[in-house]
């Protein structure tokens, strides 16, 4: 019995000695922002020497973890609801919420020409449409709004497969199991134009992605510096490069 406790104890001791030196910021980041976040992290490290450890997931899932004491110091959500809620519930620091990116939802298919995405959706000649869970992932909700605008909610309902987050929605498409799906422009920004339909902005509510400093990060100057870096010229340029709008 004693031996079974020894191993986790040892692992913990090793972990503690490893994570001690240099500032490492722990950041919870919405899955759609994976690529830019990694580049931002590298650029930030190059400039300051501090590193950022990212936890990617669905905004709802990350918020749940945060509310249960997850040690994230900054939270980059895919919406503007959860950061505000975090402040309201006492997990976020008041006055630190800002919009770091405005996201765009696209219809993506590696096999179907989606230059006119609305027509492809209306033709209904596909078996599976991948969408991130609309109740936890804002890009999933945006995708459902687009279907609603096109009057297709009911006709395609049975063909929707739900990814746990926007990354899984993309993975369903890339593995060929779903022919097409709604993802974030940032995920497919380097694909040919025929594979990506940029949904007109008036078809869905703008996806304002807000960031917030959490109470766990309130005393960490490196965490604050990272949030400032996102708002600076270098950070904004990286964010724009991945197909987001910055304000």
């Amino acid at each position: 019995m004693r031996r079974t406790f020894l191993l986790p104890g040892l692992a913990l001791a090793v972990l503690m000695t490893v994570s001690a030196p240099a500032a490492e910021i722990s950041a919870a980041v919405a899955a759609n922002f994976t690529k830019p976040a990694e580049e931002l992290g590298k650029a930030f490290t190059a400039r300051t020497g501090d590193t950022v450890a990212f936890s990617f997931g669905a905004t709802g899932q990350l918020y749940t973890q945060l509310s249960q004491g997850a040690p994230f110091e900054v939270f980059l959500a895919a919406d503007d609801k959860r950061p505000a809620l975090a402040v309201q519930e006492g997990f976020g620091v008041a006055g630190t919420v800002f919009t770091y990116a405005v996201g765009k939802v696209v219809l993506y298919s590696p096999t179907i020409d989606v230059t006119d995405g609305a027509a492809v959706l209306k033709a209904n000649a596909f078996q599976h449409l991948a969408v991130a869970d609309p109740r936890t992932a804002p890009y999933g909700a945006a995708g459902m709004q687009v279907l609603d605008r096109l009057g297709l909610t009911e006709t395609v309902a049975a063909r929707i497969v739900t990814g746990e987050n926007i990354s899984q929605a993309l993975q369903f498409i890339e593995s060929g199991n779903a022919e097409l799906g709604f993802v974030a422009l940032s995920q497919v920004v380097d694909k040919p134009a025929t594979q990506v339909w940029r949904v007109p902005a008036e078809d869905y509510a703008p996806i304002r992605q807000d960031a917030v400093l959490t109470t766990a990060g309130a005393g960490d100057p490196a965490a604050k510096a990272f949030l400032q870096f996102l708002q600076g010229d270098e950070g904004r340029a990286i964010i724009e490069k991945y197909g987001y709008e910055v304000r």
Partner: peptide, 18 residues
């Protein structure tokens, strides 16, 4: 692109997933 893509068309699907 896998074996599922060979079997699934038997009943009109294109994948065994979902």
């Amino acid at each position: 692109n896998g074996p599922g893509g060979l079997i699934a068309p038997l009943w009109g699907a294109r994948t065994l997933a979902f």
